[in-house]
Amino acid sequence: MTRIAQDTVIVATRNKGKVKEFAHAFAAIGKQVKSMYDYPDIPDVVEDGETFFANSYKKAKTVALALGVPVLADDSGLCVDKLNGDPGVYSARYAGEGATDQANNDKLLRALGEWTEGEDTEQSLLSPAQFVCTLVLFDPDTQEHLEASGQVEGWIIAEPRGLGGFGYDPLFFLPEFEKTMGELTVDEKQSISHRGRALEQLLKKIEK
């Protein structure tokens, strides 16, 4: 049976935004979070999979086997309808390896150009899009894993709004909130985000 550590959850990421979100989520159930910042000797895992699951599974398994304890990994990204699902698994490095959030956002807007859609909002809606997340928890003792996925629908807008979140959050507009993901509070984002939904599903599986 796949298990999770009793007090501390190790997440295979060096993404500070993800670390912050996981720490917030797990604090609500009394668990601390450690990340790859706490294990600097473990090299980065090359994310060469063609799916979110493939990358999550590789990261979780590699780090879990290295540390000898269960490890949680996340792979997530932005899938834009008008770009045939891009940037997808390449979201974090859309503008190149080591790209900043700003560089990725700028490339996204250039790729969408001047195309707009929708007349029922004051926003300049460039394309429908989805944030997608796949989580994998790998247990090295049993060699078993649990998988959970989450998705949230929205729109890419032409001008970034909000200083919260990270990545493409300031460009991801949620009509039901009339806000971008970058304008939500941490609790609001956790309740509806792709990562929040995937984590909720994963925790239900663990409880079983």
Results as ranks from 00 to 15, higher is better:
residue 195 R to A: 01
residue 30 G to F: 00
residue 1 M to D: 06
residue 162 G to F: 04
residue 184 L to D: 00
residue 151 Q to H: 05
residue 146 L to N: 02
residue 28 A to S: 10
residue 5 A to I: 05
residue 185 T to H: 13
residue 21 E to K: 12
residue 100 T to V: 08
residue 140 P to K: 01
residue 34 K to C: 12
residue 127 S to L: 11
residue 170 P to M: 11
residue 177 F to W: 15
residue 30 G to Y: 04
residue 107 K to V: 12
residue 155 W to F: 12
residue 117 E to Q: 13
residue 149 S to L: 00
residue 98 G to C: 14
residue 83 L to V: 11
residue 154 G to E: 03
residue 197 R to A: 11
residue 108 L to V: 10
residue 49 G to A: 09
residue 94 Y to P: 01
residue 189 K to G: 02
residue 144 E to S: 06
residue 67 L to P: 09
residue 31 K to Y: 01
residue 152 V to G: 02
residue 128 P to Y: 06
residue 176 E to R: 15
residue 31 K to I: 01
residue 127 S to Y: 10
residue 90 Y to L: 11
residue 207 E to W: 13
residue 161 R to F: 02
residue 30 G to L: 03
residue 110 R to P: 00
residue 55 N to K: 02
residue 104 N to L: 09
residue 33 V to E: 03
residue 82 K to G: 02
residue 163 L to V: 10
residue 98 G to T: 11
residue 206 I to W: 04
residue 182 G to D: 06
residue 135 L to M: 04
residue 142 T to F: 12
residue 11 V to D: 00
residue 204 K to F: 05
residue 173 F to H: 06
residue 184 L to G: 01
residue 14 R to L: 11
residue 78 L to P: 13
residue 205 K to N: 05
residue 100 T to H: 05
residue 193 S to G: 08
residue 155 W to K: 03
residue 37 Y to C: 08
residue 115 W to N: 04
residue 117 E to N: 07
residue 107 K to W: 10
residue 97 E to P: 00
residue 21 E to M: 13
residue 118 G to L: 06
residue 58 K to R: 13
residue 103 A to P: 09
residue 58 K to H: 08
residue 131 F to W: 06
residue 70 P to H: 14
residue 146 L to P: 01
residue 88 G to S: 08
residue 120 D to G: 04
residue 72 L to Y: 02
residue 61 K to V: 12
residue 31 K to T: 01
residue 94 Y to S: 03
residue 81 D to L: 08
residue 64 A to T: 09
residue 78 L to S: 03
residue 88 G to W: 06
residue 30 G to R: 05
residue 132 V to A: 01
residue 50 E to L: 07
residue 27 A to I: 01
residue 170 P to Q: 12
residue 99 A to S: 15
residue 206 I to F: 03
residue 150 G to H: 02
residue 203 L to E: 09
residue 20 K to H: 10
residue 100 T to S: 15
residue 176 E to G: 10
residue 36 M to G: 05
residue 157 I to F: 06
residue 136 V to H: 03
residue 146 L to R: 07
residue 133 C to Y: 02
residue 95 A to R: 07
residue 124 S to F: 06
residue 88 G to V: 05
residue 80 V to F: 09
residue 138 F to L: 01
residue 54 A to P: 00
residue 92 A to L: 05
residue 3 R to K: 15
residue 7 D to I: 14
residue 49 G to Y: 02
residue 57 Y to L: 14
residue 57 Y to H: 14
residue 196 G to S: 08
residue 21 E to P: 04
residue 104 N to R: 11
residue 179 K to E: 02
residue 110 R to V: 10
residue 128 P to F: 08
residue 146 L to M: 13
residue 30 G to Q: 05
residue 110 R to F: 04
residue 111 A to D: 15
residue 155 W to R: 05
residue 87 P to V: 00
